[in-house]
């Protein structure tokens, strides 16, 4: 049953991928003076050398985590639109903690920093859950608005007391290298945080699929009247799911900082949250499928970057290509959700 659904998903995924790249190529074809080069770099750039390959892989790490964050919230039938802000604020707090942890061993400091990020992100998201439960505030709106506010708050501190005066831009001081994830494929950005991301997706997969909590989340998400009727504490499940969702987002940003940037920078995570929602949509809410769909997103990002470096594709054009591909894929996913919902991966 599971295998069947997954193979079907894979087929759909690959098909849209091909269509999407064809559409992207057509757009480049109409705008580029030298379209063949541009298309070649767009399609093959990310795998043309180990540097871009590594960047593609490392770029997918935060998307895997925000994707998981969206998956968890969706599974419980809640919508966390505040991923962007939860991630940013949690990462900011975690970075500040990291800056005060000078001298600790990596095996101790990294889990601690990640823990802080998880808790802060989780609480930020859970607050929307509390509003939903106590005052029936739609969490879709509240999480988004609170998230936006959190971004401004973090930016304020990043520009003020926590700004590195020698940075020349809005950024914190550098975290000591001893607290960073080690590089895997230098000079690319790929770092050992990738294993953390994979491990977390596996854990989320198992929890959602095999645990009591996963059961409660799925029942609540599929029909909360039924869950309530069956004796599941629906409010509690919502709260936990939002907390985990925000926590995942926080981890996503923090792993990125500990692996790639080495410091908190203004706007470093722009788009991670919303792309995470798209990733979850493409992955059809399956925590394992989140990995390939995050890779796809990262592939597009790097492809666009490479083709803007190597050919005459302006950033604007590459954004349009990305958007087209994204719409195609999500529209397909949505259509599939609506038409083929009986076959959707809810079976178990």
């Amino acid at each position: 049953m599971f295998m069947k659904v997954n193979r079907r998903w894979l087929k759909v995924f690959l098909f849209t991928l091909v269509v999407a790249f064809i559409c992207g190529s057509v757009i480049i074809l109409t705008t580029s003076k030298n379209p063949l080069t541009a298309i070649r770099w767009f399609c093959l750039g990310p795998v043309s050398n180990t540097y871009f390959l590594g960047n593609m892989l490392s770029g997918s790490i935060p998307l895997v985590l925000t994707g998981l964050a969206a998956v968890i919230a969706f599974s419980a039938g809640t919508f966390n639109l505040g991923l962007e802000g939860q991630l940013y604020f949690a990462t900011f707090c975690a970075t500040i903690v990291a800056l005060h942890l000078e001298g600790l061993v990596r095996s101790f400091s990294i889990p601690l920093i990640l823990f802080v990020a998880f808790i802060v992100g989780g609480l930020a998201a859970a607050f929307s859950g509390v509003l939903k439960i106590l005052f029936r505030v739609d969490e879709l709106l509240s999480s988004f608005l609170i998230g936006q506010a959190l971004i401004y708050i973090a930016d304020y501190f990043l520009n003020g007391p926590f700004r590195d005066p020698f940075a020349g831009l809005s950024a914190s001081k550098y975290i000591s290298g001893s607290m960073m994830f080690s590089k895997i494929l230098p000079p690319s950005d790929l770092h050992s945080g990738v294993f953390v991301a994979i491990a977390i997706s596996v854990v989320v997969y198992f929890v959602l699929r095999f645990s009591n909590l996963g059961y409660q989340i799925k029942v609540t998400g599929s029909n909360h009247d039924f869950a309530h009727y069956g004796g599941i504490k629906v409010h509690w499940v919502w709260l936990v799911a939002l907390f985990l969702s925000g926590g995942m987002a926080g981890l996503g940003g923090t792993i990125d900082v500990l692996g790639v940037h080495g410091r908190m920078m203004k706007g470093f995570s722009f788009g991670y949250g919303f792309n995470g929602i798209a990733v979850a949509l493409i992955a059809r809410n399956n925590p394992i499928s989140v990995i390939p769909s995050a890779l796809l997103f990262s592939y597009l990002e790097v492809g666009a970057q490479v083709s803007s470096i190597m050919a005459d594709v302006t950033p604007e054009v590459s954004k349009i290509v990305q958007a087209t591909i994204f719409y195609l894929i999500t529209a397909e996913s949505l259509a599939d959700f609506l038409i083929g919902k009986k076959v959707a991966a809810h079976g178990r």
Binding site: Y51, F52, N55, A171, D189, H261, M265, F268, Q305, I309
Partner: peptide, 15 residues
């Protein structure tokens, strides 16, 4: 977005 400058610079060099 100033956080994108450094990766872009390194990417340019890597080509």
């Amino acid at each position: 977005n100033s956080s994108k400058w450094e990766p872009l610079l390194i990417s340019l060099a890597s080509t």
